[in-house]
């Protein structure tokens, strides 16, 4: 049997009727067995749908996967990130400075060697290559006395192919120094001696040799003096002369 309340029964059970309508329907159900039975049947269906509807459950793995996908992701703390970034920048900066410094030193060295090569060539090209012309080291060395602010020793050349030609005053970077000319076979070699603090600050310490501008060169420091041996003689000859000088200096 269908009465005017029938269409309202589901809404009533859903709890969506107004308070007044709910009260009225409550009263009606107490007096209408048919509607009461209908409500009971619908309530039964409603409960069954409720439990039947909870039908599917996911796997725990899937649930965990979703949870992980939305979880607040652990991130590196900003402080640590900043520290890392700062360290990286500092490292780059230091590397940059070191590179610049090394490059500057290299440029300075190249500049000095190029200047020495010029001095050597200029000396050989000069009409008067030496100011003191003597093969005797005991003549040449005293000649420099009072002309340069330091003294030096020259090697004994007996039993060697080298000959002392003479010496002259020279300047490198406005610092005075001695230039000695040696000869081996047809090659002339310049030996430059300066105070290291005056010329050697960017040349590094210790000895070095290089072949540049077609000249062979040996350079080293000893007791505050900077020595250069430069010439177009073979590297072996240059090194031999350098070794002889090292022994006596």
């Amino acid at each position: 049997m269908v009465d005017h309340w029938t269409p309202q029964l589901d809404t009533y059970l859903d709890g969506e009727l107004s308070a007044n309508e709910t009260r009225e329907l409550d009263a009606h159900l107490r007096t209408c067995p048919s509607c009461a039975a209908d409500v009971l049947s619908r309530l039964q269906l409603k409960r069954t749908i409720h439990s039947a509807g909870q039908r599917y459950s996911s796997s725990p793995e899937f649930r965990e996967r979703i949870r992980k996908s939305i979880a607040a992701k652990p991130r590196r703390s900003p402080v640590r990130m900043w520290l890392g970034a700062t360290a990286a920048v500092a490292l780059l900066l230091i590397a940059g400075l070191v590179t610049i410094s090394v490059r500057q030193q290299q440029l300075q060295r190249e500049h000095t060697f190029s200047e020495l090569a010029d001095l050597h060539v200029a000396t050989l090209a000069s009409a008067n290559p030496v100011d003191v012309f003597s093969t005797d080291r005991h003549t040449v060395k005293p000649w420099f006395q009072g002309k340069i602010p330091f003294t030096f020793n020259l090697p004994e050349l007996q039993n060697s192919e080298f000959t002392l030609v003479g010496g002259r005053i020279t300047y490198l970077g406005q610092a005075p120094g001695a230039e000695l000319i040696y000869q081996i076979r047809k090659h002339q070699i310049s030996v430059f001696i300066f105070q290291d603090r005056a010329v050697g600050r960017d040349l590094g310490s210790g000895s070095l040799s290089l072949k540049d501008l077609s000249f062979n060169l040996q350079s080293w420091t000893k007791d505050g003096m900077r020595y250069f041996v430069i010439g177009d003689a073979s590297n072996n000859d240059i090194r031999t002369l350098a070794d002889m000088l090292k022994k006596v200096s």
Binding site: R55, R63, I70, K73
Partner: peptide, 29 residues
């Protein structure tokens, strides 16, 4: 921004995960 982002993610998790079983059931239906 980082703190807000983390707060958002943790709030979302707290609100959304309790709905997981029901949402899955509904999705399967």
């Amino acid at each position: 921004e980082v703190l807000e982002e983390r707060l958002t993610a943790s709030t979302f998790e707290e609100l959304a995960m309790p709905l997981f079983d029901q949402l899955y059931n509904f999705a399967h239906w």
